[in-house]
Each structure stands twice: as structure tokens, then as C-alpha cells.
């Protein structure tokens, strides 16, 4: 059987078609074929959250989904969210609160934070911690990240 697949999807609003090996993970497709390297590859088995990508409006592990499975989907990466200005306030708060150190976890952390704030506009610190528990950060100790997300939640409520 053919070990390649033809796929068509939207990546950050742009329609793309490619022929790729069926075994290609979505995050590798985004990084190597689309040359969008903001989504990071850490553990490669679903533990660290660095590869978080949005598919049809919901965050997924980019390493636990095949690119072939995103056929016909809307895929959004940190580059798309960033360019659209959708998370400008989160990025600013992360910067100001020093919630970014080495930056490896940051794209995944931002996408996860954005999904939380879309579901819950006034999360408690405990709820923030629980929601980002699937995203490892080895630098900050999380305190500053929770601070930043909490502040953006407050700002968005106005």
C-alpha cells in the first residue's frame, strides 16, 4: 500500500496541498514543510506540550496527530495567532511578568492559555495551574506564567 498521502489543509489561513509520508506528525509537517518553526518539538510523546497547535479551533498535541489527519482542517500555529494579534495581550503580559525565560515552552503555553481564557473568562489561580498542567516549563517555576494569565483574564473582563 502507498505510504504517502496527499493532503490539503489551511495553515494560518493559507490553503496548502502537499504529498507527504503518511507517518509525518502534524508538528513536523508544520515545521519542516511549512517552515513554521515556532511550534517546538520536545518529548515527542505527548507529555511536554511544547508542540501545541490549534486544529479547527481547539488545541492539540502536534506530536500525537498525523498531518494526514488534519486533511480539510484549519490549522493554526503560534505564528498565525501572533500575526493576527489574537494573543498580543498575553504576549505582552508574559514579557512584562518575566513569564518567558528560555522560550521553548512559550508558544505552547500561549496557545494553552488562550484556550483557557476562551472557555473561562475568570479562572482562579488553581484553575489556571490545572489547565496549563500539560505544558512543562523548566525555567520559570510557573508562578510568573500564572501571574501573566491571571492579569490578562482581568484585563479582558475590563
Amino acid at each position: 500500500m502507498d505510504q504517502n498521502v496527499d493532503i490539503t489543509m489551511k495553515v494560518n489561513g493559507q490553503q496548502v496541498s502537499r504529498r507527504i509520508p503518511a507517518r509525518t506528525n502534524l508538528v513536523d509537517f508544520v515545521r519542516y514543510d511549512m517552515e513554521l518553526t515556532g511550534s517546538h518539538v520536545g518529548c515527542e510523546h505527548g507529555v511536554c506540550g511544547a508542540c501545541t497547535i490549534r486544529v479547527n479551533g481547539e488545541i492539540v498535541r502536534g506530536c500525537l496527530m498525523l498531518a494526514a489527519q488534519a486533511e480539510g482542517s484549519e490549522v493554526e500555529t503560534i505564528e498565525g495567532l501572533s500575526d493576527a494579534g489574537e494573543i498580543a495581550d498575553l504576549q505582552k503580559a508574559f514579557h512584562e511578568r518575566n513569564a518567558v525565560q528560555c522560550g521553548f515552552c512559550t508558544p505552547g503555553m500561549l496557545l494553552t492559555a488562550q484556550e483557557l481564557l476562551k472557555k473561562n473568562d475568570s479562572p482562579s489561580r488553581e484553575e489556571i495551574r490545572e489547565f496549563i498542567s500539560g505544558n512543562y516549563c523548566r525555567c520559570t517555576g510557573y508562578q510568573a506564567i500564572v501571574d501573566a494569565i491571571e492579569r490578562v483574564a482581568e484585563e479582558r473582563r475590563g
Partner: peptide, 13 residues
Amino acid sequence: LREIRVKPAPFAY
């Protein structure tokens, strides 16, 4: 870069 991308063994989908 494309050549680096190898994780699962090949399969059909």
C-alpha cells in the same frame, strides 16, 4: 530539513 523528519516506522494510512 525534510530528511530529518523520521519518527514512526513507515505505514500506510
